[in-house]
């Protein structure tokens, strides 16, 4: 197929990781995927690849290797950039034709992105700590949530940024997706035990 010729698939992606000496589960790869406009996991389009690297002014493997730390830092500390990468990750992560992310997938991408953003300050003025996020995951499993919609994905970031882990700034009249309302109710109920 023609498209195969224009795409780098799983094997290629792993080789790319080797060439760039980066762990395939390094969060920076999500920033790279964003820069190169990857349509899906382990898929690169020729055009995205070319314009992406050109915009980053990288034409050699050495330059590519060299730019990764910069992207990693930018992703951790630049709120607007984090937001862009976070948002793009949903579309990147979901299977074609699906409207939501399976919980497992959503959780692993949150696991890459959120701690990175929290530690680097990209979620400022959030007061959430990486450990406190576990309550969110516990809720999703406890209530047997299956999929995460695009709206839930985006609003969670907004929620973490503006509402504190004790929910004092939470307004139940605001337009949070109902899953977030359910989470707050769940977390308050489980406050002592978790």
């Amino acid at each position: 197929l023609e498209s195969d010729v224009d795409s780098i698939l799983v094997d290629g992606t792993l080789r790319l990781c080797q060439d760039l000496s980066v762990d395939p589960e390094d969060v920076v790869l999500l920033a790279v995927a964003f820069e190169l406009k990857c349509p899906a996991v382990a898929e690169f389009s020729r055009e995205g690849w070319l314009t992406g690297w050109t915009n980053l002014r990288c034409d050699t493997v050495q330059a590519m290797q060299a730019i990764l730390p910069q992207l990693r830092t930018k992703l951790a500390s630049d709120a607007a950039y984090f937001q862009q990468v976070y948002s793009a990750t949903f579309d990147f992560a979901k299977s074609a034709g699906q409207r939501s992310l399976p919980l497992e997938t959503a959780e692993s991408f949150w696991g890459l992105l959120l701690p990175h953003g929290i530690r680097g300050g990209a979620l400022a003025p959030s007061t959430w700590t990486v450990t406190q996020l576990s309550s969110w995951y516990a809720f999703l499993h406890d209530t047997k949530v299956k999929g995460v919609s695009k709206d839930t994905w985006s609003m969670l970031l907004e929620f973490l940024k503006t509402v504190d882990p004790q929910f004092t700034a939470y307004d139940e009249e605001a337009a949070w997706p109902s899953i977030i309302d359910d989470y707050v109710a769940w977390a308050r109920e489980h406050a002592g035990s978790v």
């Binding site: 409207r99 939501s100 695009k150 709206d151 337009a175 997706p177 899953i179």
Partner: peptide, 10 residues
């Protein structure tokens, strides 16, 4: 709110 969620998703 659930209906809003559904309509956002659809």
């Amino acid at each position: 709110k659930k209906a809003i969620d559904t309509l956002l998703e659809k």
